[in-house]
Design a binder for these strands. Sequence first.
DNA 1: CCGTGATGCTAATGCGCATGAGCAGGCCGG
DNA 2: CCGGCCTGCTCATGCGCATTAGCATCACGG
Lengths: 355, 355
Amino acid sequence: MRRQDAPRVRITQRQVAELAGVSQSTVSLVVNGKADARSRIPRATRERVLRVLREAEYVADPAARRLAGGMNRLVGVFTYEPAFPAASRDFYAALLTGIEHQAEQLGYDLLMFTSAPVTHGRRQLFHPANRLRLADGCLLLGLEMDDADLERLATSGLPFVAVGRRETPGVPYVAADYAGATAELVGQAWDLGHRRFAMIHRDSSGESVQDRLRGLIDELSRRDRGALGTAVIEAASTTGLEKEWRRVRRAGASVVFVESPEHALVVLDLARRDGVCVPDELSLVTLGDPARATPVELTRIVPPRTRLGAEALSLLGQILDPQVHLSTDELRVTLPCAIAPGATLAGPADERPAT
Amino acid sequence: MRRQDAPRVRITQRQVAELAGVSQSTVSLVVNGKADARSRIPRATRERVLRVLREAEYVADPAARRLAGGMNRLVGVFTYEPAFPAASRDFYAALLTGIEHQAEQLGYDLLMFTSAPVTHGRRQLFHPANRLRLADGCLLLGLEMDDADLERLATSGLPFVAVGRRETPGVPYVAADYAGATAELVGQAWDLGHRRFAMIHRDSSGESVQDRLRGLIDELSRRDRGALGTAVIEAASTTGLEKEWRRVRRAGASVVFVESPEHALVVLDLARRDGVCVPDELSLVTLGDPARATPVELTRIVPPRTRLGAEALSLLGQILDPQVHLSTDELRVTLPCAIAPGATLAGPADERPAT
DNA sequence: CCGTGATGCTAATGCGCATGAGCAGGCCGG
DNA sequence: CCGGCCTGCTCATGCGCATTAGCATCACGG
């Protein structure tokens, strides 16, 4: 289907050129504000062209511009799941808030790749008709990303930034410092007198899971060898955490670090069922932020989601700016997390009297 | 910056053509599965080309494809407020859910006009650097829209669809049937025995406000002249509804229709304060859906937000399709609202014993 | 009056693809 | 044995834009 049969509403540089009595090249030069020594447009001509551009409401065709190697101030946003349905809304909305705000500041429009087909609840980045290249660069959002996708994207030459730490080489990202926040909370627990730690983490090799684990392990070993024992428990993803809970109790932990907020709520229920009072008899630290308000205010890590979004777009903006050259380090940004004090962390039961 | 300095990993039809020993045209024909009488590719050749395409992992450049073919399959989404921040999230998210889903079905990508500057909390549609024309058409979302904007858009030739009824001529829209839903609720109240109605509506000439008013008035007059009196009260937007509440009481209304959910909650508080029991002594019907869960389950209208979004994109799709020609009627779609029974509508106090 | 450099622009090209026109060769009917 | 038709492709072109080379004009110094 050629365009010729559709009503021609879009105005082209050539038409502007005719109206202004100059050549298409001149229009292009004016549009892009080029003022090299090679191509000089005097103020009078420039303003004449600009006036016509304005009056005719000229807007460049993004496809043509891309094809010819130009920029569109268009940033693609790819979410591995549909972003707006209630299920994923809370996760993406905060990120998108930051992205949207920053886009306004930087003058970018956002291209949401909603045409990507969803299979098994996840979007296909490289589907046959993907329009990734319409954008100048793109942002990748999602709890888990496909390594193959990331590599392919990295080699494709299309600039992009992932939200969340990705070990894949050559992948620029903006991530929350889960390791640091976990270490901080370990420190707090330690200072309260806890010596027996347990951790329940997800069955995933995702970087953020590993980061939290590392934060815990490292901080505990840093605090000298005074720890009386640490149980690290991998949660089978399907169960109700019965087994994991028993292991926590058997280990005699006085504080349990739970990676996922959903799991934390389950643990809370199990504790109540067994008459274990939190935090008096057992402290509970959650290493993530629940999607919605919880009945009990959890002591937890709160990642700076809105800022993550904003910083990701900023970083992409830097990458896209031909003036700026970033070092490898600068391509990987880590932002500190907040810690919500909550009401589930206290001193251990057997230390209380002594203090 | 020409693309030439980027690593060239992408393979083009021309390269595929060389590998397969055919012309670029042939590759294009195979890629697009054309089999006109004019251009016939025998199975052998086709499969040879397909094999090379597969082995070389050819992916068409969307920019080039669009440039050669016409449309961008890009639909703009303009929201009068930033869409993602918590304040407006609940309103837009439901709409966007429908839009996103439909975009996936129809193969559209969404262009969010986030570069439009926000002044006084509202985005400027026609700001000097607006990039509306980047899209093939666009969707307008927002509680209130500027009439001038709508007219300008209508005359600009850019196809668009508004969500929400707009009287401005030539504006295609998809709207919720507030009039019908209000009438339905009036009918329910009437059938329960209510004869004294009051309504508190917003101080706005917005179409949806007018629709609800009309639904109430029309249905009451349809139900013959048995109504003992109807008080229509315009809420001053700033006050705590004290005055309005007193008027409702003075009018002796047995049921009060409140347009805005926020106002309904205020009325509920005032009633409690005055010891008026809802719904035993006074029924309360809300003509809209609150952003978040309310302590009391309101009897109310629930607009089909997700469907509104989906239908709006569908309609725009139809408008953009050169094959389809829509009549004026078909450019204006009205969808029925759901009614949440809730717990604030019951028979009137003085009727109860008689029934 | 000529050479030289600066000025102000335009012509030409290519990005990767879709598509209509058309060409070469084979086949068949007459 | 030739004309016409079908088959299987290729050629050429343009989509709208960015970019580079370079042309024409003019000012000015010598």
